[in-house]
Amino acid sequence: MRYLLLKKANFDDFISSLAQIEKVVAPVSRGYNSFSFAEVKSGKEITLKYIPTVLPPKKYFMPQREKLTEFNKAENSVEAILEYEKMVIFGVHTCDLAGIQCLNIVFSDKPKDINYLVRKNKLVIIGLECNDYCDQYASCKVVDNHLPNGGYDLFFTELDDSFIVHVNTGLGEEIVEKTRLFIPNDQEHLNKLEAIRARKREIFKEEVNVKHKDLVTLFNDKAFESKVWEDLDKRCVACGNCTAVCPTCYCFDILDNINLDLNTGDRTRRWDSCQTEPFAKVAGGENFRKTRGMRQRHRYFRKFRYPAERYSRYFCTGCGRCTRTCMAKISLKETVNALAAEQKYKK
């Protein structure tokens, strides 16, 4: 739609005035070079230069625990419900914008998930550009997420003493109206933005020895039998960290909870991990992914092959969280490179 400018001097006012209208969440520092999205009241609480948060903003779109139905046994009634909260999410990197797009696709695939689809439109997304690599674990270029590909209401790019802001939607315009801190930009600012993007095109290189389009073919039937998974079998401890932090992992469990009156209660879905042992076990005891290696293989194929076949999109956003968080130091880039080497792939 259009570009506007926000002076850095006004950033704190911007967040605090926004926080008066709506709940605002943004990346805050947790120490030890860790960050998480949390509620903020002022811009000072926000860390603008952050590496991907421990959990991605997925937690607002698909809460860790979400009530689906409520029941009353005595009245023999069940109601389907949605619990939601209006919120502005500030500071979403392009990798996480891509993650949200992946979730949108999954939950709008038929049959549609009404809970997700209604909730997502209660959330305002303000993106924030990474002008440089966050760290050595990221691989956003190979999956093409180092530059913005939509999925936001406003998008901030840091210039010298200001942010150039892309206003992408009506919701974004509303924020501009309500906060009254944005000013028109000059051509000079657009030139600077273009210079940043040009520099990014230079410094962001495919982080693995595989081309973007070839990732899906790398995860072929032969790769299913690869030695790589035997290696991961020995190293993985099935702590489930990689799936918890992944912006595109959406597996869940559904559990009943009864209240202490033993009459009313709810059916709740909760994040689940395909890396845990019981995940694919049927009631009779058969486990269809018995070993940690099989489960790791499943995770990788769920990022690079199955969604590519179903939705023509990789479900790896290149955020690097799974590698960053892995206790066993299993690295996504190393795994992909090992597969490429095994298949004697040439870029």
Binding site: C251, D253, D272
Partner: peptide, 19 residues
């Protein structure tokens, strides 16, 4: 085929057999 199933609508991931 029999699999562990939670949602029944192709979302929760438990019953997945490759793609």
């Amino acid at each position: 085929l029999e699999r562990h199933m939670k949602c029944g609508v192709g979302k929760c991931g438990h019953c997945q057999i490759q793609n």
